[in-house]
Amino acid sequence: MVAATAQAQQGMDHSAHDSHAGAAQHSPMQHDGMDHGSMAHPPVSAPSPAASVPPLSDADRAAAFPDLPPHAMHQGGSHFLFLADQLEWQDADAGSALAWDISGWYGGDIDRLAFRSEGERTDGHTEEAELQLLWSHAVGPWWETVAGVRQDFKPGSPQTWAAFGVQGMPLFGLETEVTAFLGEGGQSALRLEAEYDILLTQRWVLQPTAELNLHARNDEARGVGSGLSDAGFGVRLRYEINRQFAPYIGVTWNRAYGNTADLLRDEDEDVSDTRLVAGIRFWF
């Protein structure tokens, strides 16, 4: 039985096995002819930059943005400024005139004691002169409130006013002043002023200016009428020898309106005036 089984195994047909072996021997893989470009490979992702940066902690934020004490930016001590914005000769119809517009202050970044003065002298006679003493208080980076007194010396008899208003720069480089006045006998007035520096070069600066004055009541003794009393406009071209000293030339135009113009006509005076000006601007 065992011998028969052995004979049967020796008689098995190994042709199928030989055929498979021959196929394996004569059909090798042709690697040289394969197109590797068409093979799809999984994308290789670069490491994320955020993966190498540790997250910010509260300690990091506290170190970068430390808490500041109240008004830390305004603890710079007291300072002062004197500015002669206009100190000029004017070619007036009545003769040569000397006009001034000066201001200054002393104090810190929040509260200051300030003054303003403007006026005009023609042929040695004072036509207009006033002085304001004000306390200014900063209410923002670009604005401050003012309050104080104004004293008029000319025209007419001296007159005292209470003054309050705001001043600042609503736009970059545009300086504005809006001041209300309460005077004797129930008189009140409002003044609006603006000036703007246009930098033509590093030394040449063009400065337009404007001023409006309004009054609530007629004041014939001082030649002032109610409503819009007068308006003045000017343009000055200055050359800054340095930042603190600059000669200039320019032209100004002034006109009276309403009741003020009527009072001037009654005195046979002109209601408008155009002047050539030349002067210096300096500060320290």
Rank of each mutant, 00 (worst) to 15 (best):
Ala3Tyr: 10
Ala3Ile: 09
Ala4Val: 14
Gln7Trp: 15
Ala21Trp: 07
Gly22His: 14
Met29Tyr: 14
Gln30Leu: 06
His31Ile: 03
His31Gln: 11
His31Leu: 10
Asp32Ser: 13
Gly37Met: 10
Gly37Asn: 15
His41Leu: 11
Pro47Thr: 02
Ser48Cys: 02
Ala50Gln: 15
Ala51Asp: 13
Ser52Phe: 09
Pro55Gln: 09
Pro55Arg: 14
Leu56Phe: 09
Asp60Phe: 00
Ala62Pro: 06
Ala63Gln: 04
Ala63Leu: 03
Pro66Asn: 00
Gln75Pro: 02
Gln75Phe: 01
Gly76Tyr: 01
Phe80Lys: 00
Leu81Cys: 03
Phe82Met: 00
Phe82Arg: 00
Glu88Gly: 04
Gln90Tyr: 15
Gly95Val: 05
Leu98Val: 14
Trp100Arg: 01
Trp105His: 01
Arg116Leu: 15
Gly119Gln: 09
Gly119Cys: 07
Ala129Thr: 03
Ala129Val: 06
Ala129His: 06
Glu130Cys: 08
His137Arg: 07
His137Gln: 04
Pro141Arg: 12
Ala147Asp: 04
Asp152Tyr: 10
Phe153Trp: 12
Pro155Gln: 09
Gln159Ile: 01
Ala162Asp: 01
Ala163Pro: 01
Ala163Cys: 02
Val166Glu: 03
Gln167Lys: 09
Gly173Lys: 12
Glu177Met: 08
Thr179Gln: 08
Ala180Arg: 03
Leu182Val: 11
Gln187Glu: 02
Glu193Gly: 09
Ala194Leu: 07
Tyr196Ile: 01
Leu199Ile: 11
Leu199Pro: 12
Leu206Ala: 08
Leu212Phe: 15
Arg217Asp: 07
Asp219Gln: 08
Asp219Gly: 06
Arg222Glu: 10
Val224His: 14
Gly227Gln: 04
Gly227Asp: 04
Leu228Thr: 02
Gly234Arg: 03
Ile249Glu: 04
Gly250Ile: 02
Trp253Lys: 06
Asp268Ser: 14
Asp268Arg: 13
Val277Thr: 11
Trp283Thr: 00
Trp283Asn: 03
